[in-house]
């Protein structure tokens, strides 16, 4: 589904990704782990098309299309979901309004009819229930006044409603307590564990991987994948540290 080949990317004058190659097939969940400054977040920003991140070499193919050639909103419409490490507050815009606009924009680009207000609320209620999130939160302004945990759960509800084909989740587990971590992990399993979908999970910790069992674990260091293995690699990293495993 996602095929990254020899990707080089810079922020300002600094090269952060230095030849990253990675392929995630349909029905697979891959985890990327790595020390601070390895380029984990940069990878998610480049995949999402965030301004300020420049690709200098290499290619990214998503669902058979050139991902890097698309605008950020076109990437989303093609089925890419980017979970933010720091979800952004949008004062004055409610979650309901935000998500309905997002879903209908995506539907429009696929040539589908927009969802009516009633149908949208039905869908939102269903997905919020799935993630044990009350509807009141959806009426609030996007992420305004949300706690860290609420923001991350809200990201999961967004993912549930938008129903993407592929999710890149950037440290979705950071700042979560144990209960919230389980809710988020279960959310990923419920929404994304599907033979036609894929997930790239960027994380620091083993805890989330206990809930979302990855098919493959990659170690990212100094802008490249230095080691790839099964779930046992994450356990080895947890006990021995990046230095020992990735050296």
């Amino acid at each position: 589904m996602l095929k990254i080949d020899n990707l080089h990317a810079t922020v300002g004058e600094t090269e952060i990704l230095k030849g990253l190659t990675l392929e995630v097939g349909a029905g697979e969940v891959h985890a990327i782990m790595g020390p601070n400054g390895a380029g984990k977040s940069t990878l998610s920003y480049v995949l999402g098309g965030r301004p300020g991140y420049e690709v200098t070499q290499g290619s990214v193919e998503f669902m058979g299309q050139d991902l890097l050639d698309m605008e950020p909103h076109e990437r989303a419409a093609t089925g890419l979901f980017l979970g933010f490490q720091y979800p952004v507050e949008i004062p004055g815009v409610s979650n309901v309004q935000f998500l309905r606009e997002a879903l209908n924009a995506q539907r429009a680009s696929r040539g589908e009819e927009p969802l009516s207000g009633g149908d949208f609320l039905k869908l939102a209620r269903e997905k919020a229930g799935l993630l044990k999130l009350d509807m009141e939160m959806l009426k609030r302004q996007v992420n305004v006044g949300f706690s860290g945990g609420e923001k991350k759960r809200s990201e999961m509800v967004q993912m549930g409603i938008l129903d993407p084909k592929f999710a890149v989740l950037d440290e979705t587990d950071s700042g979560l307590d144990i209960d919230a971590l389980r809710i988020v992990g279960d959310g990923i399993n419920t929404i994304m564990r599907d033979s036609a979908k894929g997930v790239l999970l960027i994380t620091h910790y083993q805890r989330l991987l206990d809930v979302v069992r990855p098919d493959k674990v990659h170690v990212l260091a100094k802008g490249r994948i230095v080691k790839t293995g099964g779930p046992e690699l994450a356990l080895q990293l947890e006990s021995e540290g990046y230095e020992a495993v990735a050296a």
């Binding site: 605008e71 950020p72 909103h73 949008i90 815009v93 606009e101 997002a102 879903l103 924009a105 938008l162």
Partner: peptide, 20 residues
């Protein structure tokens, strides 16, 4: 950018923010 990442084109994102 956050809105774009959810599929909202720039002109609609701008309108939503101005409306708010």
């Amino acid at each position: 950018y956050y809105m774009a990442a959810r599929g909202i084109p720039p002109e609609i994102a701008r309108k939503l923010m101005i409306q708010a």
